[in-house]
Design a protein around this nucleic acid. Structure first.
Length: 509
DNA sequence: CGTGAGCTAC
């Protein structure tokens, strides 16, 4: 038998890891340990890449510590990366903090870990520390930082990052992230300019731009870009088609949507999945074809999930169909038992129909499960600082001034026909959110602050934790017209792009 | 001889 040293074992393990044959890679690690060959840092960083089980990861980690291999940058970076993949950020951070010196790869791993786990604040904080420690960001760093700015809707931070991106202006992944940042921060000018300057575009670039146009209320442009994409010879993928159907639904193109859904398998070899059906339910729902939407859900090859039913529920709300709303809401609750908004909406519908027993039952099951609705919170970026407004919380230093200003706005709007909307039956607002405090919903405060503080040409970009209520939606439409401002509110589900008295969602959300 | 980190979705 030939002599097998650590290198030959490692070569083998690394090859399996590269091919995604994770079980094989682990088997060979065990075999080599059994033969008494001690793994080195190359072995561990390869096998960590192949580890797809959190328990095994922890075992490997302790093994690594036993042999003193945890001081290697590659090994630590692989550990951080793998813990992040499982969402175990505390473990990732512990590994990171134990190190005295860190190389760029390790910084990239921890920044990427936070960015990918929607922990944008931490990612940006780490990025600052990294620069303070004297490291220059590379493509991977900047991509993660862009992702963090995107998640937080921080256009100004994203613009600053753009300056660094210029050094790597041929990096496709980085440009794609930049494109997405501009789209999600409501700057189609920025996105168009990046897209037109890219020397190379892949399917992700096109898909990002198509979805971005549609999200910002430019569905017809999105459809035109899709035609251009096909014309250029680029093959659409699963995600491209989600964007295309999303555009169809926002533009009310019922026929086109049905056509693409039916033909995408034949034309592009893509089987329609949950996301495509979701767009179609949205499309049919907007058009008021609720029965057809239900039929489509029943016809899906894949199981509908909570998002699918929530989409139908939205349609029921817009078209004021209480019976179907109750049915859809029950499905949502079944699949997502912690969704406070749906319980509240259901209870409001029952209350409106004097079905008090059901109201009591729902309130009881919320208590039992410990479900409470978190207060509405809105964020806005002004002078590179994030200002948070929480319903019923007056801690913003200028809160009195902002409220005075908001009251003036409301007065002016009422003089041109704004009537506060107090129909809450098919909304998920709690009792105390309905009355006097309606006037001070967090997005209204954030918008008022934005108008006070930002120059007229700047888009007012708000991020919200809950969906916008009907009254705030009407208020913002009228305000955008009266003040001639562009206002973007990004709620957890969709974008509302207000301009000239209209919203990109078409009053459907 | 054999190692890490970044992009699009209802």
């Amino acid at each position: 038998m030939p002599d097998r040293n650590v290198v030959s074992w490692t070569t083998l393990i690394s090859a399996y890891a590269n091919k995604g044959m994770n079980d094989r890679a682990l088997e060979f690690l065990i075999l080599m340990l059994r033969e008494g060959v001690c793994p080195n840092m190359y072995t561990y960083s390869s096998v960590l890449r192949a580890c797809a089980d959190l328990g095994v990861l922890r075992q490997l980690h302790s093994g690594i510590i036993k042999v003193g291999m945890e001081c290697d940058d590659f090994v630590r970076s692989a550990l951080i990366d793998n813990y992040s993949k499982w969402g175990e950020l505390q473990d990732a951070l512990d590994v990171f903090n134990e190190m005295v010196t860190k190389d760029l790869g390790v910084w990239n791993s921890i920044i990427g870990g936070f960015a990918q786990n929607s922990n944008g604040d931490e990612a940006l904080e780490m990025y600052k520390c990294m620069k303070r420690a004297g490291f220059a960001p590379d493509q991977a760093t900047l991509t993660s930082v862009l992702r963090a700015s995107t998640a937080l809707a921080l256009l100004e931070v994203g613009r600053q990052v753009h300056v660094h991106v210029l050094k790597f202006d041929r990096d496709l992944i980085l440009n794609n992230a930049l494109l997405d940042m501009y789209c999600k921060c409501g700057s189609l000018e920025g996105a168009n300019s990046v897209f037109s300057r890219m020397v190379e575009r892949d399917v992700i670039s096109w898909s990002t731009m198509i979805a971005g146009l549609a999200q910002n209320g430019c569905s017809l442009e999105a459809m035109r870009l899709f035609e251009q994409m096909k014309h250029s010879g680029m093959e659409p993928n699963y995600i491209t088609m989600v964007g295309v159907l999303f555009a169809c639904s926002h533009a009310g193109l019922v026929e086109d949507g049905l056509h693409y859904l039916q033909s995408m398998k034949r034309s592009f070899g893509i089987d329609p999945g949950r996301e495509h059906y979701g767009c179609m339910v949205d499309l049919l729902g907007r058009a008021g074809k609720l029965d057809e939407a239900v039929k489509l859900i029943n016809k899906m090859e894949c199981e509908p999930d909570a998002v699918t039913w929530r989409t139908l529920l939205s349609a029921c709300r817009v078209h004021r169909n209480s019976d179907l709303a109750i049915y859809a809401a029950k499905q949502v609750v079944k699949l997502d038992p912690d969704d406070a908004g749906t319980y509240i909406l259901l209870s409001n519908i029952y209350a409106n129909n004097q079905r008090w027993e059901e109201v009591t039952e729902i309130r009881r099951s919320m208590r039992v499960r410990g479900i409470t609705k978190e207060p509405g919170c809105s964020w806005i970026e002004v002078n590179k600082k994030i200002h948070a407004f929480i319903l019923g919380d007056d801690s913003h230093p200028q809160v009195d001034e902002i409220k005075r200003y908001l009251n003036q706005i409301v007065q002016r709007l009422m003089s041109i026909g704004y009537v506060p909307d107090t129909n809450f039956v098919l909304q998920d607002l709690e009792d105390e959110q309905r009355e006097a405090s309606l006037q001070y919903h967090s997005e209204k405060l954030a918008i008022a602050y934005g108008i006070m503080s930002l120059p007229r040409e700047k888009t007012i970009m708000i991020r919200k934790n809950l969906r916008i209520c009907g009254d705030c939606h009407t208020f913002t439409k009228l305000l955008a017209k009266m003040e001639q401002r562009i206002i973007v509110i990004r709620d957890p589900v969709r974008y509302h792009h207000f301009r000239d008295g209209a919203c990109s969602c078409g009053d459907f959300w």
